[in-house]
Design a protein around this nucleic acid. Structure first.
Lengths: 217, 217
DNA sequence: AGATTATTCACCCGAATGGGTGAGATTTGG
DNA sequence: CCAAATCTCACCCATTCGGGTGAATAATCT
């Protein structure tokens, strides 16, 4: 079993050295390089070919997110684990979109870090529980929170409305809510009438005006 | 320090009892009830007022997702941790949107389960690393799409796209652009294929994710 | 208890939609 | 100039959707 080869990217020398010390004392981890900036990291990765890159977010020059974006594009085999103090959602999403496979806060303990490194190296992904919560909350609010409650829709109709807004078909709605397609059609008809709309597409467009941005698939 | 009060919902008796045995042997955890169906769980939660509900996904009758939806709506103080064999993305997303605070695969070990329960109880969130990966991948690809200007749509297709996003019918689009309905259908088909969508409603939902809020009819 | 509302489901019908093929006209890029 | 892409339109087919009627059950209100 060969060691996991690590590259540490952080502009704080002391933190970097502390990490190196911590990781070198553990079997199975090998720090093969350190970089103090995004630019430096981009040069080092192709040469060193690390398994996992521990990347800080806030760095002068090319930030950790942008560095991750370029790095993962040019070197997909290198997994990036963001290691940061930033609890801001923007950074989390930016990092994910840039191709990061993990996002760990610096207040994590050594055990959590080692576990995260293992996970990321194994092709899995790991977020700090706090950041996982942020992610879930954003995905949950993908529906229509505030204005929806003022709509003249019944509870069940609101369920259907949410799914309609996401572009779901009658069949998908039926499966999701574990009711028949016939029932879904009834709800859809009532929703269209109450909102004075004429097609499910209009419902999605209508929802678009009601709330900002949602989820996903 | 009082124990975490748990409700276990799973139609597999043996699995349920195994869990109970496991949790009772650990200090700090107290199983205050078991349910073998979604309906049963919905009745028990208001009475028992558990801190954390361990919920299976696949159950006869009301499934775990729908049960979670109703349960979290009526009892927001109860945190739901999905515990399932299902690695399907649909279930993950459905569970999240239903209000689950965690999603753990049943192949997790005891330590991971206990950790997840602690996290969820503390108001954090926890997903299986594999499912975290799925989530990140969706956010990287379909979840957060490219800006409209970078979409692989031709000029005319973008015209049609805009109208689709507003919920327009083929006839309305045809009139607006002064082309035939046949032509509109052709454009719509090409748009669906290029964006890998399956219905005009999905296009509207897709557009909803693209831009915060544009035109209103 | 009776009325109303909400939720569920069934059946029917015509219109709209998605998906495929083909094809002529025009523009654009090599 | 020729090839590729784009825009236009037509026809066909199967599925989905919008819309109407009716109805049973449960919950809620009066």
């Amino acid at each position: 079993m060969t060691s996991i080869r690590l590259l540490i990217v952080d502009n704080h020398t002391l933190f970097r050295q502390g990490l190196v010390s911590l990781l070198q004392s553990e079997p199975g981890y090998e720090v093969i390089g350190e970089a103090s900036s995004g630019e430096e990291a981009l040069h080092m990765v192709p040469e060193l070919d690390p398994d996992v890159v521990l990347m800080d977010v806030k760095m002068p020059g090319i930030g950790g997110v942008e560095a991750t974006r370029r790095l993962t594009e040019a070197n997909p085999q290198a997994r990036v684990l963001m290691l940061t103090v930033s609890e801001e959602e923007e950074n989390l999403f930016a990092a994910i979109q840039a191709g990061a496979r993990g996002y760990l806060l610096k207040n994590a303990d050594a055990g959590e870090l080692l576990d995260a490194i293992q996970r990321v190296h194994a092709g899995e992904a790991m977020l700090s529980p706090i950041m996982t919560l942020r992610l879930l909350q954003v995905l949950q609010s993908g529906g229509i929170p505030a204005p929806l409650s003022e709509l003249p829709l019944t509870s069940r109709e609101q369920d259907v409305f949410q799914l309609l807004a996401q572009g779901a078909s009658n069949r998908q709605i039926a499966e999701t809510l574990t009711i028949t397609e016939n029932t879904v059609k009834t709800h859809v008809r009532n929703i269209l009438e109450k909102l004075e709309l004429h097609s499910r597409s209009e419902v999605a467009a209508y929802a678009r005006r009601l709330s900002p941005t949602p989820w996903s698939p």
